[in-house]
């Protein structure tokens, strides 16, 4: 029996819920609004909320900075590249662990998880020196490699929990019906595995896009993704709030939308299946 909800109670929680939601979202909303102001209006007191002359000038200026598109490209290459390589490594591994588990499968999974617990600063020095000696500093290749390894445990774990949910009997049934291995993979496995793979991919692109330890420490001008580009706005002599807002809005908008789509999978991915 569902609990009856009085209209008054619902109204109270509507007001409360929206107030809290807007309060938490406010910094993002404020950034969005400021990105359409002139630099003068951006720092005006009292602050201008909606009734100012909206302008797209900041977006033009940020994009016209010769290097802006380079940083966007870097972000895309690094996050998508590291995710795809990670998937290529993880899909077979997770598959094997889910469908032909051995006594040691659990240990392997736990060990993979434990690599994720290593604080990045513990290996900063050797990695920096290796990168320096191999000419990988400030290259996309180097960052793709590091981010692949960082997110590989999460990818394996997420895929494992998804693959575990595919009933093995269905595969057997297909085999009994005379499906060849090729057909089994194309017609039976893929349709069942794709949603899990897609959400794993989405979450990992988000994590790689926002990664801000290695991207800040291992890049300079050439391979810097948006995280590092935005960090360059921290210098006190170059405080342009409206332009910072425009650059920030463009940097977070695509990932925010992807995040909203993958919110259900987020819990599973980030808790390694401990909370579903």
């Amino acid at each position: 029996m569902a609990r009856s909800v009085t209209t008054q109670r619902k109204l109270t929680f509507t007001i409360l819920g929206w107030a809290i939601g807007l309060l938490i979202f406010f910094p993002i909303l404020w950034t969005f609004l400021t990105s359409f102001k002139t630099e003068g209006t951006a720092v005006a007191t009292p602050p201008q909320f909606l009734f100012f002359d909206w302008t797209l000038e900041n977006y033009h200026e940020v994009q016209n900075r010769s290097d802006y598109m380079k940083h966007v490209t870097n972000s895309v290459v690094i996050s998508v590249g590291s995710t795809l390589i990670g998937l290529a490594l993880a899909i077979p591994a997770a598959w094997a662990m889910a469908f032909s588990p051995t006594k040691r499968t659990k240990d392997v999974l736990m060990w993979m998880l434990s690599t994720k617990m290593m604080p990045p600063v513990g290996v900063l020095v050797p990695l920096y020196l290796i990168f320096r000696d191999w000419g990988l500093l400030d290259t996309r290749l180097g960052l793709v490699a590091v981010l692949t390894m960082i997110n590989l445990p999460i990818i394996v774990w997420m895929l494992y929990t998804y693959f575990k949910e595919i009933p093995g009997e269905i595969l057997e049934a297909a085999r009994m019906d005379g499906a060849s291995l090729m057909k089994e993979i194309v017609y039976v496995l893929t349709p069942m595995a794709v949603p899990g793979i897609a959400s794993t991919m989405l979450l990992n692109i988000i994590l790689a896009w926002n990664e801000a330890f290695w991207t800040l420490n291992l890049t300079a001008a050439n391979a810097a993704p948006l995280t590092a580009f935005i960090a360059s706005y921290s210098s006190p002599e170059g405080l342009f709030w409206a332009k910072l807002s425009a650059a920030s809005t463009m940097a977070i908008a695509p990932i925010l939308i992807m995040g909203w789509f993958s919110q259900k999978q987020l819990v599973r991915g980030l808790t390694f299946g401990a909370v579903k």
């Binding site: 109204l11 939601g21 979202f25 950034t31």
Partner: peptide, 27 residues
């Protein structure tokens, strides 16, 4: 609790998680 616009409020609340650290710090 059930209320009007629950889904949207949920999206508003989880949004900060997707903002890259350098952006949130500077903003």
């Amino acid at each position: 609790q059930p209320f009007w616009g629950q889904g949207i409020v949920r999206l508003l609340v989880i949004a900060p998680f997707f903002v890259m650290p350098t952006v949130s710090a500077l903003v």
